[in-house]
Amino acid sequence: MILKVDEIHSYYGKSHILQGVSVSVSEGEVVTLLGRNGAGKTTTLKSIVGVVRPHQGKVVFQGDNVVGLPAYQIASRGVCLVPEHRGIFKLLTVEENLTMAARRDSAWGLKDVYKIFPRLQERRKNGGGQLSGGEQQMLAIGRALMTHPKVMMLDEPVEGLAPVIVDEIVAQLKLIKATGMSIILVEQNLEVCTQLADRHYIIEQGRVVYAASNAEFLADDGAKDRYLGVNIVA
């Protein structure tokens, strides 16, 4: 088990957002956090990486409880969050965005990122602000890889993107998964989730209300209707 979140409670001011969330991720596993808007999915990611400090509970990464550490120290240990807003530097080139994040000990270099994201190599001299939404998402993921993550967390990576770009990013994430990367994915597109994930958690009102393997989740129409208000065709 590379990451175990144990009964964390997190707040925004006096608002009790996470009310005892527990999730875990094994080496090389892809896990999704599902749920309606406002359920606490993004807050869970922020709590893991230290942007939000849990008031109770543990976040155990590679055997150490990292709750209370500054976010930059948690990131330096190998927990990386790719936020929903992507956070790329629009005035820097693609290559500058990537190289500024590079770590000497990283298993990922420019060639590795360009192999998975050939569009980035084509656009390497372009400014980040000149990229399409899909290309900016690829850049955000590529930049995360340059930091040598052991667990990569993605918040809504395909939101608002055209279906052809979604398919491209899913294919790229499958390549990253094949390297043995552990991934936590927050995503509303259930088809994307079921293509990538080994296991799923559903969060509702700050609590985990459902956990299942991908096969179990695909077969459980009742859970999809009850907790997500949707159904998918496999």
Rank of each mutant, 00 (worst) to 15 (best):
P83Q: 09
V59Q: 10
N65L: 03
V52M: 04
G28P: 03
P54I: 00
K14E: 12
V59H: 11
L120F: 07
R53D: 04
R53H: 06
E27T: 10
P118I: 05
V67P: 01
Y72G: 11
I116D: 04
L120H: 10
P83W: 08
T44Y: 09
H85I: 14
K111Q: 11
M100Q: 08
R77I: 06
Q56N: 10
S22V: 10
S15R: 05
G40D: 03
G40Y: 02
L110I: 08
G63E: 14
V113E: 05
P118T: 08
R119H: 06
A107M: 08
V94R: 03
H85T: 15
T44K: 02
N37W: 07
L91K: 13
P118Q: 05
Q62S: 15
Y72E: 15
L69D: 10
R103H: 10
G109P: 00
K14I: 07
W108S: 00
I116Y: 05
D105P: 06
V82W: 13
M100E: 05
R119P: 04
V51N: 03
K115D: 15
E95H: 00
R77N: 05
I116E: 05
K111R: 09
T44D: 09
V94A: 04
G13M: 00
R86Q: 04
G68Y: 10
L120Y: 08
L92I: 02
G50R: 03
G63I: 14
V94S: 01
V60I: 15
S15I: 12
I116A: 07
E96L: 02
P70G: 10
K58W: 13
V82Y: 13
L18S: 00
V30A: 06
V67D: 00
N37E: 12
V79S: 12
C80G: 11
V31I: 15
G40M: 02
K41A: 09
R53P: 01
V49I: 15
Q73T: 12
C80A: 15
T32M: 06
G20A: 04
Y72M: 09
V51I: 15
V30G: 01
L91N: 14
G68S: 13
L33W: 10
R104W: 06
V94W: 03
R77P: 11
V67R: 03
R86C: 12
R36I: 11
I116Q: 05
T99R: 02
P70S: 09
H16W: 04
I74D: 12
A39F: 02
V21A: 02
P54T: 04
G68K: 03
E96Y: 04
L120G: 05
G20Y: 04
